[in-house]
Amino acid sequence: MRYILRKVTLFIVTLWAAITLNFILPRLMPGSPVDAALGKLASAGVPITNAEKAAVEAQLGAPHTSIFVQYGDYLRNIATLRFGTSFSFPSQTVALTIGKALPWTVVLVGATTVFAFVIGTLLGVYAGWHRGRFADSSVTIGATFFGAFPPFWLGLLLLYWLAFKFGWFPLKGGYSPGTTPNWSLSFLGDALDHSVLPALTLAITTLSGWVFGMRNNMINTLGEDYVTFAEANGLRSRTVALLYAARNALLPNVTAFGLMLGAVVGGSVLVEGIYSYPGVGNLLYLAVTNHDYPLMQALLLVFTLSMLVAIFVVDLLYPRLDPRVRSAT
């Protein structure tokens, strides 16, 4: 019980620190939302005037109150779950903007993370069991090769060849232009088609982490006495590999997987950017370039909250997975 109480206290303190940082960090960026909005016009070659700046300033309703008043409003808004209106999308609330983007990211990155975890871990088990042999080195070298691709570069490569040159996949977006998200079968198929390239990019570049983690844990575990004992008892090698070695080797990977799931909500700014995927990664990029404080704050809050919850859940679950943690605390 004391263990849980301590974790809950820690969770609350960390949450407050994170919330406060979310407020401070965006405001440390030099320049104002008004300048950022005018920058979009300027980059298109539109001559900017003082009158235009004054008008945009009035339209955005950029804050004029003191930073402490803003912080008070911010805390109150979080407590009541009201995030206000963003500068980038003045016609809809921040909550709605994020609500529209979040499912795209959760499904894409979530499914890819689970996929990469399962495949990567199995490959790691396989390589670890056959350590030092051809199977091991081909998996290891392959994983090193693919793991070394920077995601944005692999993304551009796949985009150019598979989408532009061969025309197998659409160039951009989460669904075809002109359609509105709905639950019809044709729309889901369309969305699936649009998700193949970003999913492939994410999967290829994250797979190798799981492979290495699992392979190295396997090799450590295989040196343990109980594995030797199991082998000496004449158990089938598959039983030894999966039930005795892999089960124990899996523990650190499960922790990492929990944390990865927490990070899923953060999406992938680079990959979503390359494919213009309508997820939160893209939204964060937009919020930063527009100096959109309300949107940025709400996004960072969602990210930190999901990360903290993931850590909290892993903390709570860990004693069940590994009894040694229970006795240590």
Binding site: G167, F169, P170, S176, G178, G189, D193, V196, L200
Partner: peptide, 17 residues
């Protein structure tokens, strides 16, 4: 898998623009 997916949906992805 990618090929299959592309084959099934080549029409939809191309008519877009």
């Amino acid at each position: 898998a990618a090929l299959l997916a592309a084959g099934a949906s080549a029409c939809s992805s191309h008519s877009a623009g």
